[in-house]
Design a protein around this nucleic acid. Sequence first.
DNA 1: GTCTATACACCGATAGAC
DNA 2: GTCTATCGGTGTATAGAC
Lengths: 187, 187
Amino acid sequence: MARPAKMSRAGLAEKLTPVFQQYGYDGASLAMLADAVGLSKASLYHHFPRGKEDMALYALAHSGARLQKLVLAPLAGRAEPAQRLSASLEGTGLYYDGDIPHCLMNSLLLGEGRHLFGGRIAKAVSAWRAALAATCVAGGAGKQTAVDWAGDALERLQGALVLCRVSGGRAPLEACLDKLVAAAPIG
Amino acid sequence: MARPAKMSRAGLAEKLTPVFQQYGYDGASLAMLADAVGLSKASLYHHFPRGKEDMALYALAHSGARLQKLVLAPLAGRAEPAQRLSASLEGTGLYYDGDIPHCLMNSLLLGEGRHLFGGRIAKAVSAWRAALAATCVAGGAGKQTAVDWAGDALERLQGALVLCRVSGGRAPLEACLDKLVAAAPIG
DNA sequence: GTCTATACACCGATAGAC
DNA sequence: GTCTATCGGTGTATAGAC
């Protein structure tokens, strides 16, 4: 019953993602992307007929699915809201993996990528913030308190990811996640 | 006594900076950079003999001088520490100018720029954090409290700048600066 | 100090064999 | 579905006239 081992477009997108994360849309060349998936440039075009823009789009989709699974799904569980929140923040640490964690949304917001994907990224950020706030409300927080904390949490998270690239490690992210758990308006 | 009106390397760097801010190092092309200063590509090489790397270096220097003047100098004044802090945060709002504020350090930390300028950027961030913390200590805050708040402030600031690119405006930055003033450990 | 013209590598993308 | 070979264009960088 296992799905075919053949590499799917989603499977390819997974390997393309780190290239876009580290180099941005303009900085990621087809040569690098082809090397990352272990195929020639021409083969990449078989899987992504519309070229690099398609590749980044599927990288975004892959990243969005990962966010859904690791970060958003825990927020929608049936556990206590406070536990859901800490599970989601734990998932956030897994979502931003690697020795130097990068945020694809941040990287794609530079240069041409901003024009191509800015709208999509803004929607994803909105959904994330809304899900965090809803969980806080479910845990008894006031609506304004919940929305404010959710916005703060995303802001600090993104800032921590920038500082991770500054320092070349994961420490700012891990510290940030710990602080967010402690400062949650519920639990 | 005014210095010659002829365009200096620093003056050119000022016009190059927004290109690197918006496109990053890899994404900024010589054609865009030449267009930004109103010269041909060949003329740019007269002023920056080592090419694009030199241009980014001087953009970083220009940005660093601006940070010094608008953000760090107010911290070293003779006013009350709390006033110095709020003056510096006001200067921070000026430092990150434009309809959609961008951080050059963040942009240059992507792709090849990270390898070329990562060390320099890390030093600048360290100096900024240290100056913030020193002002807090001067205002009576405990050393650990001061260092923690300074790190938090830079983290939130960088996060707010990312959210500014997400939303396409200045609102997250302005809100962040207001909150930082209110949450300072002194005054 | 500025320019036009150019060198040569690499870019994103396509053709067509296997 | 993968590849080699190639296209036209653009990339960074230089040469040399004015």
